[in-house]
Amino acid sequence: MIVQSSAPVALIGGAPTNEAALKFVLSLADRVVAADGGAGTALAQGLALDSVIGDFDSIPPLVRAAYPADILHHIAEQDSTDFEKCLMRIDAPLILGVGFSGARLDHQLAVCNTLVRWPTRRCMLIGEEDVVFLAPPTLALDLAKGTRVSLFPMGAVEGRSDGLNWPIDGLTLTPDGQIGTSNFATGPIGLSVTAPKLLVILPAEYTGAVAQMLLKNGARWE
């Protein structure tokens, strides 16, 4: 591990960063880490970084030179993305990611793939419009009636739901078959799933509620 913390850790990516999202994660985080080119965002915001992790193919030389050499962790292998390199090396109760959406679609898809392949890392990604996270075994969220709730399977997964206009009970969700986007809440929701394969996408206004839920002891895959 490069970063170990008993409190949430902020992780900054190289995509455009929403100011409100960045302010939120910094209010909760104990430490701040940049994924490769995210160091440029951190520098522009005047943020002190604990670590920069990545293959360093997208960090400009002037940005790299602005940070002490001992916080720069160059991971040369090309079998993983910079986001995955970070998730592999951060041990924290929750990783709060910003700067991982709103730019290249292939990067966003790779990030979603990583969330599913590292289910023991509790992580939420916050953008201008959405917050996305891997559904834990069970969850409960107090959502207003009519709130958009999108469920996207990254593999075959079944589950049960309460408080969704279209329940998922009895369905097998798959990325090439039945999905669950554009559902909506009829009030507070409950969800249980059989495998760490389901991404939950909610409006960004529920970022705080999601963080509180994910920090609960039971909201994790072992």
Rank of each mutant, 00 (worst) to 15 (best):
T81W: 12
A69V: 15
V32H: 00
R31T: 00
E222T: 05
A195Q: 12
S27W: 04
A204R: 15
T207Q: 06
V111F: 06
L141G: 05
A65R: 15
E19F: 06
A219M: 03
I168G: 08
I53A: 00
G146S: 13
F184P: 01
A39T: 07
R121I: 07
P60W: 04
D106T: 13
M1N: 10
A69Y: 09
G146W: 11
L202G: 07
N217W: 00
D91N: 12
L26D: 04
E129S: 09
K145M: 08
T186E: 10
N165I: 12
G40Q: 09
T186A: 02
I189A: 03
L47Y: 08
E84W: 03
L62N: 14
G14Y: 02
P8M: 12
N113H: 15
G146I: 11
L28Q: 14
K145R: 14
S58A: 11
P153C: 14
G190R: 12
A204N: 11
S6K: 15
R104N: 14
R160M: 08
D130Y: 06
S58T: 12
Q4H: 14
G37L: 01
G146F: 12
L164K: 08
G177F: 10
L151N: 07
I179N: 13
L151W: 08
K85C: 09
F152A: 09
F24M: 11
A44C: 06
L199A: 10
D30R: 00
P175M: 13
A140S: 15
I201T: 11
A103L: 09
T120I: 00
M124N: 01
A34T: 03
T114N: 02
L62R: 15
E84K: 08
A10W: 01
L62G: 08
G40P: 00
I2R: 06
L143H: 07
N113D: 14
D162N: 07
L125G: 00
E205F: 03
C112N: 14
T138A: 15
Y67K: 11
G177N: 14
G187V: 02
F133Q: 07
C86W: 03
A76D: 15
G170K: 10
H74C: 12
A10K: 06
L199M: 13
D30A: 09
L11A: 10
T186N: 04
V116C: 09
D30P: 00
L143T: 05
A140D: 09
G13M: 10
P136A: 05
M124S: 07
N165H: 13
E129G: 01
T207H: 01
P196Y: 04
L87H: 00
